[in-house]
Design a protein around this nucleic acid. Structure first.
Length: 152
DNA sequence: GCCAACGTTGGC
DNA sequence: GCCAACGTTGGC
């Protein structure tokens, strides 16, 4: 199995949305970046664990953990003309964007702030803390995962 | 709200 | 296929 980090703006989907719906799969939609899409399509698998990271908000950082329960399928929002994620160039026959489903695992006892992650020597290779990083779905190595868990 | 960094688009 | 222009991300 693999480890991942998914970014989200908590006003849209936060770790509390997962915590408030235990055992209920949440569809991870709206990824509109090809590199992130390729990870979802090719590498994210059922049983993988995912850090849920809150961005563009007051408390920026890793908020909790979710688990993949459904592998890649066409992101329905790309076909919905009323959605902000609508993509007129995508077709049912040849969908461009991919979603997966996640379920809640846990909230971290305390959010691990980004500035704390940036100070950890073992995490300098994590794309999240690299300058100019914009990847919203990124792999986390087993060692990085353990390092981050040890911060809690 | 600013803006650096990066990704995407489209003319050539 | 290059690359300038434009759009988006996301921390600050």
């Amino acid at each position: 199995m693999n480890y991942w980090l998914f970014k989200t703006e908590p006003v849209e989907c936060s770790i509390d949305d997962f915590a408030n719906a235990p055992d209920q799969p949440i569809s991870w939609e709206g990824v509109r970046n090809y590199q992130a899409r390729n990870f979802l399509r090719d590498d994210v698998a059922v049983g993988d664990d995912v850090f849920i990271y809150h961005s563009s908000c007051k408390d920026i950082g890793i908020a909790g953990i979710a688990r993949v329960v459904r592998p890649a399928y066409p992101d329905p929002s790309q076909f919905d003309s009323s959605s902000i994620y609508y993509d007129p160039k995508s077709t049912e026959a040849c969908p461009r964007w991919i979603a997966v489903d996640l379920v809640f695992v846990c909230k971290l006892p305390e959010l691990i702030p980004l500035d704390k992650l940036k100070k950890i020597a073992n995490l300098v290779e994590l794309p999240l803390v690299r300058k100019g990083n914009r990847l919203s779905v990124m792999p986390v190595t087993s060692a990085q995962w353990q390092t981050i868990l040890a911060l809690t």
